[in-house]
Design a protein around this nucleic acid. Structure first.
Lengths: 115, 115
DNA sequence: CGCTTGATAAAGCGTCTGCTTGAGTATCGC
DNA sequence: GCGATACTCAAGCAGACGCTTTATCAAGCG
């Protein structure tokens, strides 16, 4: 029932998304590539801190860093969010199925009462 | 662009899901209600630890605890996962739109070359 | 070559987490 | 009432996390 292989990756991905600054960075990278300096600009914290945040996003596969001159442009890794979404969707599917079964069960009980 | 109101809730929700044991508990509650003792049974850790995990899930709105005799039955809070999904969907939507714009832009460039 | 810019590496610090143990509370059956 | 059951509360501890500062590295520019 539990797919153990993906657990560590899901841990890392949800943990990465559990931070407002990192979610913000992901959202902004959705608009296009950006350098570390550009990404750091809106925040009060140091450039190093933002670089570390990007490191977290990179380690869980959400973001990749390239090299262009002395900058390191960051981009969103297209299919990466799928892992998180599919876990949630699976969880919702199970819940919805159970609700359906419950409805069926209740309907049968009502039919029984009518007879 | 950033909806600040929901940020704390998203923090808590993603943080809650960033733990394998808690994701497992959510998955099992999808199958139906369960008491703390039942939820704790599969794990090597103490009952208190599981109770704390449930506390985390409760605090972010994913789970609610009732009372029945001396047990405290836990159930999944139906719409709660929506918050997480909708953030991810929004992020993917932005990315997809940008890709579309890029395609359009490239198409226009090609049209220009043809003329 | 030195100087600046963009970025990472490493160490330190306060805080938060996950878990433990021990104690306390509420409800059941006798 | 009494003990057992189901659970929460509280304190403590090792490890992870977010951020800082200092140092380092690589690339462009005078």
């Amino acid at each position: 029932m539990v797919i153990t292989v993906d657990d560590e990756r899901l841990d890392a991905m949800f943990a990465a998304l559990a931070d407002r600054t990192r979610r913000d960075i992901v959202a902004r990278l959705g608009e296009g590539e950006a350098t570390v300096k550009e990404l750091a600009a809106p925040y009060a914290m140091s450039l190093q801190a933002v670089s570390q945040h990007i490191g977290v996003l990179e380690r869980c596969g959400l973001v990749s860093r390239g090299r262009h001159r002395q900058t390191r442009p960051c981009r969103l890794e297209p299919g990466a969010l799928e892992a998180a979404v599919s876990w949630i969707e699976e969880s919702r599917r199970v819940w919805a199925e159970r609700m359906d079964r419950l409805d069926t069960h209740l309907a049968r009980l009502q039919d029984g009462e009518r007879q």
